[in-house]
Design a protein around this nucleic acid. Structure first.
Lengths: 358, 358
DNA sequence: AGGTATTTGTCAACCGGTTGCCATTAATTG
DNA sequence: CAATTAATGGCAACCGGTTGACAAATACCT
């Protein structure tokens, strides 16, 4: 006979062409409209404009939607509105653990607020970064740049088109999330001074790094305050390898304590110095920045100025999402909102009292 | 006569109300069509169906597109076609370094092939994972699941809707990328046997972890081959902390060598054992899995069975993208393609000769 | 040349929501 | 109770590409 009462169970043709269409979640507002006996536009309103339709109709529609297992088609929505419920995160280096917590913080906030995060990396290059940003522009509502390498003007250009939040850097007119290095650094330098050190070296990071400059300034200021001598050394790249390479300069500098631009450098430096027979912290103290994953794996564990990276990530995402929803901080005039987070010294074994040379 | 020769220069109405939209990259195929003097559909074909229009028209259109700085609107394209040029990557834990290289590998491949990658995390929960996957379904062309925690059936259900590639697990009927543990494990066990060990403990990972099961099997087999005794211990969670907690059981087991489900466990275990005064590797040898970032920071540096994680990430992305483009591996019948990658022992300081108890 | 086979471009109908404008209908008020 | 006003739902025109069907133009053939 002709199909008793299971009109849909009639998948007669068999699994014709695998997952071509089967998966497309199919119910549309038109289907809902039919079931609920209203006009599609009413469905649209019920689902996105709270209070625009009567409570009765609302319920009718919601029930129908639930029954049909309806899900909005993000593309159909994005087309006329331009809103995509997506933001982009660009980091300088995906494998640099500094960014892990930032990524996680941002992702968590995204999911929480029903946004999707797309990730891209700039490979520490300003050009690649700009390309990635441009590529994203078309598909996202806003952008988070973590430790951007492009110049201020490029950032501002992008910010003119889409909301942008910057992490680890301050750019005029763009909302930023920056760890305030002063507290952490002054704690670190005071600790070193208390341990009998007189000459401190700072190993700088990439020249384009805004944060590297801030840290160097902070170290200089703190040293002046504590009446220590501060010298600056350059690194080739902000990695473990770069840390190894700078060991030579560190020894030549005569400093008994070293602060490095980041933990990676500190770890590499420590490895190289130890390989050369130096005892840490008896002969030289080492302090890193960030407190990345693995900073406490070393022997001795690394003393470091911690930045709350996860907080930076979630803070940036929150800032961006608030911006997108128009909860923009009023009263700030033309100056963009800047979120400052605290840094603190994490005292571990790689820094300590200087032993008299034997 | 009427309109000498500049029909377009007649923009009489002036710039009425622009900058509301200033940011949105604006040129559409209709604009191009106007400039090139053809029909919009011809523009569409010229831009996406190679060879469908004459070389002359093609050039005309391309020039116009370039001049107008045209970029396709991904949403407008996605609406009728369903293709989004985006894939999703779901990892169990964003802050677990195991995934860093996977993420990077996948992201690099994505960018290379002009795809966008969106990232989500399951927080080691099968339910969260399924939710994340469902959420993504609507917006991606395919999905990569790295170390999935949901069960096979859920995975297959998803795979029925959209192409899925799984990393670190084998699921019938779904393409997978799995490190083949045997080579690495047998190297490790042979090394331990050669160093005088007789009893080996394996610290297992999460019960839902397919890979944990494989590794335990591998250890058992290799131990049998080398005539070593193998015991299995359970961990509470696959983290540094979990490693610390299992130290007690390890000591009680009487094993002189330990292989742990992953490096994190190994590191935590090592820390705890050392804190209790044990000397590694003199009194006990420790071998991890994966060779994550930081595995060589420890003292002694960690011996580990390396999985080529980056390769897994890029391999999975390549597989997925090939699938999406219909370059599906023919001849495999109904069984899905599985990509196996090699593992190898990375011999460092945490394993070695067992010294006679003093 | 006439006639068929091929390109190549046009038309128009989608894809699935959103939203301004208008017509009902219900609520409020003098 | 009639009149004014507010709440609600419907119509239709978008958003910007894609694609099947078809006609026009060009090529190829005997």
């Amino acid at each position: 006979m002709t199909e008793p009462k299971t009109p849909d169970a009639a998948a007669t043709t068999g699994p014709a062409k695998k997952h071509s269409r089967s998966g497309k979640s199919n119910a549309t507002i038109y289907d809902i409209a039919k079931v609920a006996g209203v006009n599609p536009s009413t469905v649209s309103r019920a689902l996105s404009k709270p209070g625009r339709v009567s409570a009765k109709t609302q319920k009718l529609i919601e029930d129908a939607a639930a029954e049909l297992n309806y899900q909005v088609n993000p593309f159909a929505r994005a087309l006329p509105t331009g809103r995509t419920n997506t933001f982009g995160l660009i980091v300088a280096d995906i494998t640099n653990p500094t960014f892990f917590d930032i990524i996680r913080g941002a992702e968590t906030t995204a999911t929480l607020r029903d946004y999707t995060m797309v990730l891209a990396e700039s490979a520490e290059s300003g050009v690649t970064e700009l390309t990635a940003a441009r590529r994203m522009m078309a598909t996202v509502d806003g952008l988070i740049l973590a430790s951007p390498r492009m110049d201020d003007d490029d950032i501002r250009t992008i910010a003119r088109d889409k909301p942008v939040v910057v992490i680890n850097r301050e750019v005029d007119g763009v909302p930023c999330v920056v760890p305030d290095v002063n507290k952490g650094i002054s704690e670190a330098v005071r600790s070193l001074a208390g341990n009998g050190h007189h000459k401190v070296a700072f190993v700088a990071g990439p020249p384009q790094s805004w944060m590297s400059a801030r840290r160097w300034e902070g170290v200089q200021a703190a040293c002046e305050w504590s009446r220590l001598e501060a010298v600056r050394l350059e690194s080739t790249k902000p990695t473990v390898d770069g840390g190894r390479q700078v060991a030579r300069d560190v020894r030549a500098s005569g400093a008994t304590a070293v602060l490095t631009y980041n933990d990676l450098l500190a770890i590499g430096l420590m490895q190289e110095l130890q390989a050369a027979g130096m005892v840490i912290p008896d002969q030289i103290s080492i302090v890193g920045f960030d407190d990345i994953f693995g900073a406490d794996f070393t022997t001795p564990p690394l003393t470091t100025v911690r930045s709350p990276l996860g907080e930076c990530g979630s803070g940036a995402a929150t800032l961006l999402l608030d911006l997108l929803h128009g909860d923009l901080p009023r009263g700030t005039g033309e100056t963009a909102a800047t979120l400052r987070v605290e840094t603190e010294l994490v005292l571990r074994g790689s820094s300590g009292r200087l032993l008299p040379a034997g």
